[in-house]
């Protein structure tokens, strides 16, 4: 008898895409909450810049805060339900670290939003408060590498392979994109190269490959 001839266990995932769907909801929900927090922070900063916040400003910020709380609660309920099936300790550890890194990302985003003048501060190249820049840089240089290393040691070999494949394709993408953009910018066809945009593209490619290899 072969694997394909055996019916699945009743507790197995109903479809191979169930894990992918869950990951999309968890990642998308977390990202949406972070974006909402960023919008609330940006709105509050802009309102304070214009003097005393009006009742409308307070209502808008309150509504966004309520949305954040409701979305967080729903996401927590959703993720808690998923935790009912038995899970290896290392997988639990890796998931907790993943969530912790997401929170660190949220803190970084808030720091950048608070410390930078102008709109959508996270993607701005404008001046930034030196203290905020220093704290954010230390987080990137010390906390993020340590957390990444601990996470890397916690994941299983299947996910490590997915992560490694993603990194390899992302590095290749970097080598293709950077010189092409650099040359095109010198002709004036495209704007000058922005390292953060390149970072974003490479990160998306890395994450997409990791996701496909792990869940699909």
């Amino acid at each position: 008898m072969t694997n394909s001839e055996v019916p699945g266990h009743p507790d197995d995932e109903p479809s191979p895409f169930a894990g992918a769907k869950r990951a999309i909801i968890a990642t998308g929900g977390g990202t949406a909450i972070l974006i909402l927090m960023g919008i609330a922070t940006g709105y509050a900063a802009a309102a304070l810049d214009h003097g005393e916040p009006s009742a409308t400003d307070v209502a808008v910020i309150g509504a966004i805060a309520l949305l954040v709380v409701l979305a967080s609660w729903q996401l927590w309920r959703f993720l808690s339900k998923q935790g009912l099936e038995p899970e290896a300790p290392r997988i639990q550890r890796a998931r907790k670290l993943f969530v912790a890194m997401g929170l660190i990302g949220g803190v970084l985003g808030l720091l950048l939003a608070i410390g930078t003048d102008g709109d959508l501060a996270v993607y701005s190249n404008g001046p930034i408060n030196p203290l905020v820049a220093l704290v954010a840089a230390v987080i990137f240089l010390v906390i993020v590498p340590i957390a990444t290393w601990v996470w890397w040691k916690s994941i299983d070999e299947h996910e490590a392979n997915a992560y490694r494949d993603g990194s390899m394709i992302a590095v290749h993408a970097y080598f293709f994109i950077v010189p092409a953009w650099w040359l095109a910018a010198r002709t004036g066809y495209v704007p000058a190269q922005d390292p953060m945009v390149v970072l974003l593209i490479v990160s998306v490619i890395w994450g997409a490959v990791w996701f496909i290899r792990r869940y699909l």
Binding site: D11, D12, G19, P86, E87, R90, I91
Partner: peptide, 13 residues
């Protein structure tokens, strides 16, 4: 189940 086996092998489902 897959999850049970994964737990015994210390890997993900």
């Amino acid at each position: 189940s897959q999850a049970e086996l994964a737990g015994r092998l210390d890997v993900s489902r």
